[in-house]
Design a binder for these strands. Structure first.
Lengths: 109, 109
DNA sequence: TGCCATGTTTCCATTTTCGGCAACTATTCA
DNA sequence: TGAATAGTTGCCGAAAATGGAAACATGGCA
């Protein structure tokens, strides 16, 4: 177990906007401006989040003319997210009585 | 996709010590003092990290006399962590030429 | 070449995280 | 009850993360 590396990977996914971006990228490749608009953040912010994901080895980028296309490079990561999400939702429901659908979602929906 | 909730869960796992704790807990339940000693951190630090993991729904705790036993409540998370780790290691190796075994590990080994 | 669209990087202020220490709580046992 | 063991919480300063704005870099096109 590479604790440092694993923690670094989780840190890359530990932000609502970055989860949102990964979710979008699981459907198809997107350019930065599209993703920024979808996420409702400045392009510089989207660019920085995408850099983090790329640095962590989760996404890849390719230039397409004036724009840069980002795509998912570790599809299994998303499966991890949904599986873990399901588990945690179940645990929260049964142990705390929290309704998981009542959470605030902000921009990153 | 619950971006906020998912990000919160990943944030709980986004620290070397917490990854280390989850890895330990995947083997068997441990009390705080044992985990603190294993991780090489103060018991207050271990306690705080474990609180975060519990709050995220990843671990559970039960009192056993004077000590409190923590156990994994979302085993699937660890399995998929290693899967994702493998994917990321492969991607890093092929795209950046980085040797994944050369990383510093600190206390959280 | 000059202009425009797309991204990245830098700077800065604010917020959050982190670890160690001390104080406080809870349980066991003499 | 008093002491010892095990955990938790509050406080503090240091370090890291975040977002917005501006400057800078790249590629396409008239």
């Amino acid at each position: 177990m590479h604790c440092e590396l694993t923690a670094h990977m989780f840190k890359a996914m530990a932000h609502p906007v970055r989860v949102f971006l990964l979710d979008k990228l699981s459907v198809r490749p997107w350019c930065v401006c599209e993703l920024a608009a979808e996420a409702g953040v400045d392009k510089s912010v989207a660019s920085k989040h995408l850099s983090m994901l790329r640095e962590a080895g989760l996404v890849e980028s390719t230039r397409r003319g004036t724009q840069i296309e980002y795509s998912l490079s570790a599809p299994c990561v998303l499966e991890l997210a949904s599986c873990a999400e399901g588990t945690v939702l179940t645990n929260r429901k049964k142990s705390l009585g929290i309704n998981p659908d009542s959470e605030a979602q902000g921009n990153a929906r």
